[in-house]
Deep mutational scan, measured.
Amino acid sequence: MAAGGDHGSPDSYRSPLASRYASPEMCFVFSDRYKFRTWRQLWLWLAEAEQTLGLPITDEQIQEMKSNLENIDFKMAAEEEKRLRHDVMAHVHTFGHCCPKAAGIIHLGATSCYVGDNTDLIILRNALDLLLPKLARVISRLADFAKERASLPTLGFTHFQPAQLTTVGKRCCLWIQDLCMDLQNLKRVRDDLRFRGVKGTTGTQASFLQLFEGDDHKVEQLDKMVTEKAGFKRAFIITGQTYTRKVDIEVLSVLASLGASVHKICTDIRLLANLKEMEEPFEKQQIGSSAMPYKRNPMRSERCCSLARHLMTLVMDPLQTASVQWFERTLDDSANRRICLAEAFLTADTILNTLQNISEGLVVYPKVIERRIRQELPFMATENIIMAMVKAGGSRQDCHEKIRVLSQQAASVVKQEGGDNDLIERIQVDAYFSPIHSQLDHLLDPSSFTGRASQQVQRFLEEEVYPLLKPYESVMKVKAELCL
């Protein structure tokens, strides 16, 4: 049975990233139509530049190519590739079939990587351009969430054990800070992308030097003109047959890092959902379990974690691919890159769409948070109580021993009897502590235990987050809708 299948058929496997999760716009960027249309555009740009620099290419040939950029006979191309065992030459023939007058000058002087690699770089750039505003929107939604809850005390956790208090907004800023680093890295790697350009079979530009009869300047002009037509500021000066596969490492490393950030955020949300302090959106008709109707599973956060793990592992592909590119190139890269580049971007696209949807509907339960604080705060307040007693004339050592005994009794009630923490009640009825009984409410005010959390939130948002989001103001209103 021949390899390949009808990918629109229910009898043929289709990647869930495309069929179930990723956005239509990201799927289109990695589609065959987008790819092969870009090949034709690159052939047109090459012909236009070659004509401008004096090669015998007519206006009629150029116009014929322009008129057929979208006229792609995919069936013919597939048949040609089956016959020739070469995808680029299959599309040269297919393009030439609908451009008979231009057929002889299509791909003039070029090698397969002229269309293959340059198209990949265009796709990487455009895919990054799709991700950047999506990530900015996630940051914006979380920034709104953090600002609104900047002063809401909550129990902090280290080692997932109760620690000092923080605020809900401050905790959210930990998430935002990681995503801001990801946004900066995505922008950097996007701006650092260079075009492969017009380089020939081993990167020496020998074929173009021959076409222009040894004119170095025209060869350099050709490279520059096509690079500018493709919208790049610069091209690699040095290439082998391909652009260095280190570029793929750079791009997928940034995406993998984004995956790590999203995994951490969504894990926190899942843990908070278990504590009943916070939940992701839950639709009115949504079913959490087929057997347990009360369940409210954090399905979206779980999906993000599941896909983020996949995204983090994909960076190993370009690392290994770059390491086995012998001399000017081997074909070890080809099949692998067809999979890992598309999957990385479709996965990143999915987790950003999902995280935006989550961040637009996060639900906080202040009463649950308050109750958990009441359970733990008495123990945390013991040092403040000791200091207040010393100020009232008591002995630190005597007070410490009193607190120690009462704390152990209260802990026994919590752990052995399943009761509430009654340390404060014990202190309130103990005559030894009568000098500070009137101060206990103040000493137990949760806001006095959150330090500068709310001020940190305000400063972080104003100095770091809002300036970073400013270039994306025009796209901030787009909502994230999930079908599944």
Rank of each mutant, 00 (worst) to 15 (best):
L341Q: 15
E64F: 06
L484Q: 15
S447R: 14
K233L: 11
T267H: 11
P471A: 15
Q416I: 10
A110Q: 00
H442R: 12
S407K: 04
G200D: 00
E473N: 15
C172G: 10
L179P: 04
R234Q: 10
G393T: 05
L55N: 05
F449C: 05
M181Y: 09
D216K: 08
L186R: 03
M181F: 11
R245T: 00
V368S: 07
K187W: 07
Y365Q: 08
G197A: 14
W326M: 15
G5M: 15
T111Y: 04
I106M: 07
L461V: 13
P10I: 15
I385D: 07
V315W: 11
E417Y: 09
V414M: 10
G240L: 04
A348E: 06
W45L: 06
E473K: 14
M76L: 12
T347P: 11
R309A: 05
V478Y: 13
F433E: 03
T166W: 03
W45T: 05
A411C: 13
L314R: 09
V189S: 10
S257V: 06
G116D: 15
F160D: 04
T330L: 03
M299G: 06
S261H: 04
F449S: 04
I287E: 01
L444T: 07
L124M: 09
K233D: 08
M299A: 13
P133T: 14
Q408F: 09
P446K: 07
T227A: 14
Q41A: 10
I287Y: 00
R40C: 00
A77M: 15
Q221M: 14
T166E: 00
L255H: 14
D117E: 01
Q409E: 11
S306T: 03
I427A: 04
C98V: 11
L165C: 04
L352D: 08
L17W: 15
I62S: 03
L319W: 09
C304K: 03
R33P: 10
N357F: 07
A146T: 04
V168F: 05
L142K: 08
H7K: 14
S23E: 08
L272H: 06
R426E: 05
S434E: 11
R372M: 05
K264W: 06
G259V: 02
V478D: 15
T94Y: 07
L53R: 01
V92R: 00
F36R: 08
D333Q: 00
L46P: 02
Q286T: 03
P281H: 11
P446Y: 08
R426H: 05
R338V: 01
M181P: 06
E250M: 09
C340A: 14
T242M: 03
D191C: 09
S474H: 15
W326G: 04
T58W: 09
R20G: 00
V457A: 06
I351P: 01
